[in-house]
C-alpha cells in the first residue's frame, strides 16, 4: 500500500468526524491503560477529555498523533481513524500525521531560541515556501500574542511569562497548518488570567481547527468544550486491575446537566476524583 494522502480533501463519508477510535485498547507492557475506547471527534468543535488522574486521558490524546510511538513497550489494539485513514497503518508517515495533528503540552515548552525562530522552525523543516515574516506575524496574531511580543521577536521564547509561552507554543503549532490541535492540560501550569487568555484563544481557533483538550478542571471543560468525554477507571474483569474506559461521551451541556452514567455524575459532582 502506498503512503496514504493525509489531506482533508478526500474525506470520506465521515466528513464531520475528524478523528475516530474503534475498540481502542492501550497497554503499557503488560498493564492495560485504556480499554475499548470508541469515540468520534467532531470537526471544528472543541472536545474535552475529563476524568480522574491516571485514567488514561493523556494516553488517549497521544494516540491521535502517534506520540505514543515514542514510548517503548506501548502497544495499541483496535483502530484509530483520521478521516478515512487508518492511523495505525504501518504505511502511514508519522511525520506527516504530526504535522496535520499538532500538540500543545502541559508544561509550556518553547524552544530555547528566539520567538521568531520558535514559530519559523516548524514551517522551515516542513518546507514552507511562502513569506516567513508574514507567517510569523500571522501565527502570533492568531495566537493573540503579537501585540505583546512584536518588539522583541529576537528575544528568547523562554523569557516570556508562562501564559505567553503557552500561547507561543500554540502559535508555533499553527505555523505548520495543522487541522487538529491536541492540548494536554494546557492551562494547568498557568495563572487564572493566562488561563482565560488561552481559553478565549481556543474559542477563537475553533472556526478553523478541531481541538481536543484534556483537562482536569471541570469548569474549564464546561466553559470551552462542545463535546465531553468522561473517562473513568473501571475494574477490569480479566486483569483484576483498574483500566481507563469512556464512561460517557456526549455534548458538554448534557453531560454536565443530565449525565446518564452514574459514575460521571459522581465524578462531576465531586464524589470521585
Amino acid at each position: 500500500m502506498a503512503s496514504p494522502d493525509l489531506s482533508p480533501a478526500n474525506s470520506g463519508p465521515h466528513s464531520n468526524t475528524v478523528l475516530r477510535t474503534e475498540s481502542l485498547s492501550v497497554f503499557y507492557g503488560d498493564s492495560q491503560a485504556l480499554s475499548d475506547i470508541t469515540i468520534a471527534i467532531p470537526q471544528n468543535q472543541i472536545t474535552a477529555l475529563i476524568g480522574p488522574s491516571g485514567c488514561g486521558k493523556s494516553t488517549l490524546l497521544r494516540c491521535f498523533n502517534r506520540m505514543n510511538d515514542l514510548i517503548a513497550g506501548l502497544r495499541i489494539e483496535g483502530q484509530i481513524w483520521f478521516h478515512e485513514h487508518d492511523l495505525m497503518d504501518s504505511a502511514v508517515d508519522v511525520v506527516a500525521v504530526r504535522r496535520r495533528i499538532g500538540m500543545v503540552f502541559q508544561k509550556p515548552n518553547p524552544f530555547p531560541k528566539s520567538i521568531y525562530n520558535n514559530i519559523a522552525w516548524g514551517a522551515k523543516i516542513n518546507g514552507f515556501l511562502g513569506d516567513m515574516d508574514e507567517l510569523v506575524e500571522r501565527c502570533l496574531r492568531r495566537a493573540a500574542l503579537w501585540d505583546e511580543v512584536k518588539d522583541k521577536l529576537d528575544k528568547s521564547g523562554e523569557q516570556l511569562s508562562g501564559g505567553q509561552q503557552q500561547r507561543l507554543c500554540i502559535a508555533r503549532t499553527l505555523a505548520v497548518e495543522p487541522e487538529v490541535i491536541l492540548m494536554d492540560e494546557p492551562c494547568s501550569a498557568l495563572d487564572p488570567i493566562s488561563t482565560a487568555a488561552v481559553e478565549d484563544l481556543m474559542e477563537d481557533l475553533k472556526a478553523d481547527y478541531t481541538i481536543v483538550i484534556v483537562t482536569h478542571n471541570m469548569q474549564q471543560a464546561r466553559r470551552v468544550s462542545d463535546m465531553t468525554a468522561c473517562l473513568m477507571l473501571d475494574a477490569n474483569v480479566s486483569q483484576g486491575r483498574r483500566v481507563g474506559v469512556v464512561a460517557e461521551f456526549s455534548p458538554t451541556d448534557k453531560l454536565f446537566t443530565n449525565p446518564t452514567d452514574p459514575r460521571t455524575e459522581a465524578y462531576i459532582t465531586g464524589r470521585i476524583g
Binding site: 530555547p112 516548524g122 523543516i125 508555533r172
Partner: peptide, 15 residues
C-alpha cells in the same frame, strides 16, 4: 536535554 524539547520538535512534524 529535557525530554520536552524533543517532544516539542517531534510534535511539529520534525524527523
Amino acid at each position: 536535554v529535557p525530554q520536552s524539547l524533543r517532544l516539542a520538535a517531534l510534535a511539529l512534524g520534525a524527523t
